[in-house]
Simulated assay, not measured.
Amino acid sequence: MKARMIALQAGVVAAVVVLWQVGADRGWLDEFFFGSPSGVLDVLGQWARQGTLLSDTAVTVGVLVVGWVAGVVLGSVLGIGLFAAPRVYAVVSPFLAFLNSVPRMVFYPFFGILLGFGFASKVGLVVFVILFFAVLNVLTGLSQVDGDLVAHVRVVGGNRWVVLRSVYLPSIAGWLLASSRITFGFALQATLISEFFGPASGLGYRMVAGQGAFEIDQVWAAIGTTVVLALLIDGALQLVRRRLIAWQSA
């Protein structure tokens, strides 16, 4: 059933690409505005020969992974700290809710001013974007832990470390992985936006460069590469989540 669904989805994508190419070849679609699949493949081939495809993808992945991991780790630490200090959490909870609702990507110019428009500012934006998601998810995960389970572990001789390792950390990991597709999506958006500025590298830069040169095929090539990258990482996150669920059930 799953294989059939994947085949159906691939068929839909193939049909769209074929219709797009036919429309461009017959003049139904203006290639200046819409480009064409063959033009996109030409751009990707040129990037591959020049090494641009690999280097720009590596730059984007580097910022994305470092920023996402740092944001999740820092958010987890802050979430655990706030859970352990309920009075502090009561004071800062309205600010967390406010910051979580603010469009944080618009703050990138401040990171650029403080850290320069290089790797540090790009990672800083990604961390800033997903940090509050991580904090709130950790707090939610900790609040959902069964108190009877914690009491049972303590009754059988479990100390604080055992309770943290055996009860709280699995709950935190479950909530973080459950929301990982959302946080990853925001992290990818922040990475691409940060690449609109600064050094001439990354898939986000290729999108802006294509737009500035009115090369729509270049824009589509960068978008297509980003989509493939997102699908690969999303698949890996789903695999990890399924294994964690199986481990927790066991």
Rank of each mutant, 00 (worst) to 15 (best):
K2H: 11
A3C: 08
L8I: 14
A10N: 13
G11T: 02
A15P: 01
V17D: 05
L19I: 07
W20L: 02
W28R: 07
W28T: 01
W28I: 08
D30R: 08
F32S: 14
F33M: 03
F34C: 13
G39A: 01
G39Y: 07
V40H: 06
D42F: 00
V43D: 10
V43G: 04
L44S: 04
G45F: 00
Q46V: 05
D56K: 01
D56Y: 03
T60G: 12
V61M: 14
L64I: 14
G67I: 05
V72D: 12
V73I: 14
L74E: 04
L78W: 08
L78P: 07
G79P: 05
A85M: 15
R87G: 15
V92D: 02
S93F: 10
P94S: 05
A97M: 09
S101C: 06
S101Q: 06
S101N: 10
V102G: 00
P103D: 00
V106R: 01
F107L: 14
F107M: 09
G112L: 06
I113L: 15
F117S: 08
A120S: 04
S121D: 02
S121G: 08
G124N: 00
G124I: 00
L125R: 06
L125N: 09
L125I: 06
V126F: 03
L131P: 04
F132L: 15
L136S: 07
L136V: 13
L136T: 11
L139V: 08
T140C: 06
V145P: 12
D146G: 07
V155G: 09
V156K: 03
V156P: 01
W161F: 15
V162F: 14
L164Y: 03
R165H: 07
R165C: 01
S166G: 02
V167F: 07
V167L: 02
Y168R: 13
P170F: 00
I172M: 05
I172R: 00
A173M: 09
G174D: 05
L176M: 07
L176G: 03
L176P: 00
L177M: 10
A178N: 15
I182E: 15
L192V: 11
I193P: 01
E195L: 09
F197N: 13
P199E: 01
A200V: 03
S201P: 00
G202R: 01
Y205M: 07
A209K: 09
A209P: 06
G210N: 03
G210L: 04
Q211C: 13
Q211H: 08
G212D: 15
F214R: 14
E215H: 11
Q218L: 08
T225C: 13
V228R: 02
Q238S: 15
V240Q: 10
R241C: 08
R241T: 12
L244F: 07
I245Q: 14
A246S: 11
Q248L: 11
